[in-house]
Amino acid sequence: MPRYAFTVIIDTDAPAEPYIRSLDDADAAWEAARAMIVDLMTASADPRLLSAIMVVTDEADEIVFEFPFSEALNLPAGGTGPVH
């Protein structure tokens, strides 16, 4: 099962270590990223999160996708995942 690293970037800073998860594929990683973003925005009133990005990388440290926090707010649950 592939491993993905989820890193929050605010401006040019990564305020925490990446969160690592083993998931089936990039679509599952996209759904996990969206859920994490929604949880973070629900738990924090930090306005900087509106301009934050979740960068998801694979085991080779290649970027799989970047997910702007602002986009997660505009998608219905089960919205469209990454384009391959």
Score class of each variant (00 low, 15 high):
residue 6 F to S: 02
residue 6 F to M: 03
residue 6 F to T: 04
residue 6 F to L: 03
residue 7 T to L: 08
residue 7 T to N: 09
residue 7 T to V: 09
residue 7 T to H: 05
residue 8 V to G: 05
residue 10 I to S: 13
residue 10 I to V: 15
residue 12 T to I: 11
residue 12 T to K: 08
residue 13 D to G: 10
residue 14 A to Y: 06
residue 15 P to W: 05
residue 15 P to G: 06
residue 16 A to D: 14
residue 16 A to E: 14
residue 18 P to M: 09
residue 18 P to C: 09
residue 18 P to W: 11
residue 18 P to D: 09
residue 19 Y to G: 15
residue 19 Y to D: 15
residue 20 I to Y: 15
residue 21 R to C: 11
residue 21 R to G: 10
residue 22 S to G: 14
residue 23 L to K: 08
residue 23 L to R: 08
residue 23 L to W: 07
residue 25 D to R: 00
residue 27 D to S: 04
residue 27 D to Q: 05
residue 30 W to Q: 00
residue 30 W to L: 00
residue 31 E to M: 01
residue 31 E to S: 05
residue 32 A to P: 00
residue 32 A to K: 09
residue 32 A to C: 12
residue 33 A to P: 00
residue 34 R to D: 02
residue 35 A to N: 11
residue 35 A to T: 13
residue 36 M to Y: 14
residue 36 M to V: 08
residue 38 V to D: 04
residue 38 V to Q: 06
residue 40 L to W: 13
residue 40 L to M: 14
residue 40 L to P: 00
residue 41 M to P: 02
residue 41 M to G: 06
residue 43 A to D: 15
residue 44 S to C: 06
residue 44 S to I: 05
residue 45 A to W: 02
residue 47 P to K: 03
residue 48 R to A: 10
residue 48 R to P: 03
residue 48 R to C: 02
residue 49 L to N: 03
residue 49 L to H: 01
residue 49 L to E: 01
residue 52 A to Q: 05
residue 53 I to G: 11
residue 54 M to D: 10
residue 54 M to E: 13
residue 55 V to Q: 07
residue 55 V to E: 09
residue 56 V to C: 09
residue 57 T to N: 09
residue 57 T to W: 10
residue 57 T to Q: 14
residue 57 T to K: 14
residue 57 T to F: 07
residue 58 D to E: 03
residue 58 D to N: 12
residue 58 D to C: 02
residue 58 D to A: 03
residue 59 E to K: 09
residue 60 A to P: 00
residue 60 A to K: 05
residue 64 V to D: 07
residue 64 V to E: 10
residue 67 F to W: 06
residue 67 F to H: 03
residue 69 F to P: 03
residue 70 S to M: 11
residue 70 S to V: 13
residue 70 S to D: 12
residue 72 A to K: 00
residue 72 A to G: 04
residue 73 L to N: 14
residue 73 L to Q: 15
residue 73 L to G: 15
residue 73 L to Y: 08
residue 74 N to G: 07
residue 74 N to D: 12
residue 77 A to H: 07
residue 78 G to Y: 03
residue 78 G to A: 11
